[in-house]
Design a binder for these strands. Structure first.
Lengths: 214, 214, 214, 214
DNA sequence: AATGAATGAGTGTTCATTCAT
DNA sequence: AATGAATGAACACTCATTCAT
């Protein structure tokens, strides 16, 4: 029993340390990009020795990808948890957009991480990002089919439309992000265009109603 | 006069040389990304001396940004030329989407360049990209207003909607690009998802009609 | 008395531990060389903690030199024990060569250790090796003198000749070793040239008879 | 013609630079060993930039092996040139020993280089050293056969004996070298035991006459 | 006594940039 | 104008050693 306790302690210490490193790395990678981030910056920020990072991550790249992975996991969890109880298709669209945008309002660093990932590690990004995208598109398509069946949505190619919606949301996300946070500084990303959540309504209207007059 | 002629010649030679460098740089930057591209690769591809590049461009960064600038200019020209004669708002939306996507089908390198630019030079990307985005958004908003006036488009916040449309288009673009070209190789980007142009119709439908049944 | 017993126990435990470390270290140093051997490899092989090694040896270098020292001691003991009872000078030469070569057939790791020692720690190697060499040369010279006195050996400069013989034996040893074991692997050094013992006769003939016809 | 001259100049400059680096590297590698030698030491000694070395050699290892290779070439040339005109087998043995030892009196650094090579790069050492050893052994065996035919040398297994002689010579070489140059300093290796050349006679006598009285 | 997490000095290598020719 | 040899700052990563537990 004593040993168990000790094991738990040790494990949790190691886990905690790993988490600390991931957090610090996320901040600094997001701020400076992968290449401009020096391992020393991360260790300095944590006031730990350089070698410690290498106890927990093979190299700089795998540290970065671990950060990316974690972000993806967080996003998926958030979406899943929020949407689970909602049934009405139009409502799901609305909530999904709000949740999606809200997540990035709360985790602005993720967007930067994701773009860095794509830029520096195309292959890994695609491999890891794909899983999420497919999950996202699947959920959207399912919802579209549902909506058509109930007669709420018009007839359409659900596969292609789901893809386009997923793409559009990601694009809007990037757009607002790119135009918002100019600072490479230390200010918590204060977007002069307002939060993404504020834009959710416009996007929802666009996706649900389109441009044409009824 | 003789001197003038000489100047012209010299200038045009210099311009030609500059253009050669830009072209080679675009290929290689697009293929390998900014960081992985070595100045030597570019000079080797052109079979010129390393120093020559530095006669025409201050440093690696400014060479890259010149490539980016040129791409933006090409895009703007293409859009302007194609849309100028079209008056009908819905038709303009349709043609704009087709032209926009068509441009990137023909210049797949540009997408990579643009993403690299954002990733490596946030500030410069925003500064340079802004000009184009604002131009694009302005045109869209103008068209939306026109459409509303004529009674073709529904009432809406034209500013916000124009932004969202611009964002969505860029996003769809990136989405298809990211999912298509896995290869870091030398194959001319052959997208397994098909061309962007093929997707234009779906997007046009989504934007014009929305998701809801009429 | 109780305490004495305890001391003895402790001492012998410590000695045993030290011996274990030396043995493991010899294997691994011999296999990978001094530089390529990591302290972690040794502790992993013994499944002990890294710190434990530092309780018994000041540092990596002194651990290595202890291994070398031990090898030298073993060799000296073997030679002394075997040659003690033999009196006939020519017979001593013959037996010495056989024993010397036989020792290294049984302890192939020692050769590698010795060469590593010389390569990495010239000074220490010389200091420690000298003692053995001088002991060896002394024995040879003594034997040469004996042989000359009895009229079995020809007249010669016994000092120089003893040195040359010692040198020649060491050289032959290294030669066969270098040419035999190509593998950096884990196979117990299996020399494709055959054992040293098999060569002893040729060497004995060379040293006793020379090349010239009688 | 002008171009040819220029090419020659350029080529010779590059060759000269390469030679300069090799020479400096030989000194420093011989003095400190492979691992303890820092690239910076070599560049500092030459007062050139660190990068320059990497223009001429792929990495530290290949620089070292180039040094080793060059030494082997020099030795082979020296032996071949000196022995070519000599026909009498016994005379050839005598001259070979003198030349061999003389070479190392003039190039004491080579021994160190060779031992380092074996220690750090077993495989490469064997591959490169083999060529020379086999050349050397072949020449010795040829000479032994000749001597037996003429009736100057006794009957023997020429293959094994040639090997043993080669090994013995190399061993004597190492022995004298190891015992001579204790200094890790900058003094040109001043061997307190005297030159190898001075020992050649003793070795010649040992090999030709053996130990036994006639 | 034993452990193994933490450390950080140390170094090979890269590559944008310069400048003598 | 063009060249490309030379440069050297910069940085990821290793591993012997320490020391709190």
């Amino acid at each position: 029993m004593n040993k168990e306790v000790e094991n738990n302690k040790t494990e949790s210490l190691a886990e905690r340390r790993k988490a600390q490193i991931l957090t610090a790395a996320r901040h600094i990678f997001a701020q400076n990009g992968f290449q401009r981030t020096k391992i020393d910056q991360i260790t300095a920020h944590l006031t730990i020795g350089k070698g410690t990072i290498y106890r927990y991550f093979t190299d700089k790249k795998s540290l970065f990808l671990a950060v990316f992975q974690q972000c993806l996991k967080d996003l998926r969890n958030t979406m899943q948890t929020t949407l689970e109880p909602i049934e009405n298709p139009a409502e799901r669209v609305k909530t999904a957009i709000k949740t999606f945008f809200g997540f990035f309002d709360n985790n602005p660093e993720f967007i930067e991480i994701a773009m860095q990932a794509r830029s520096e590690f195309k292959e890994d990004h695609i491999r890891m990002g794909h899983a999420f995208q497919e999950f996202q598109i699947g959920k959207i398509q399912e919802n579209l089919k549902n909506g058509i069946e109930i007669g709420v949505f018009r007839q359409m190619d659900t596969a292609k439309t789901a893809e386009s919606i997923s793409a559009a949301l990601n694009g809007i996300l990037m757009f607002y992000y790119c135009h918002g946070s100019t600072e490479k500084n230390d200010q918590p990303t204060q977007n002069p265009m307002g939060t993404l959540t504020e834009r959710a309504e416009t996007v929802t209207a666009l996706l649900l109603d389109g441009l044409l007059k009824r």
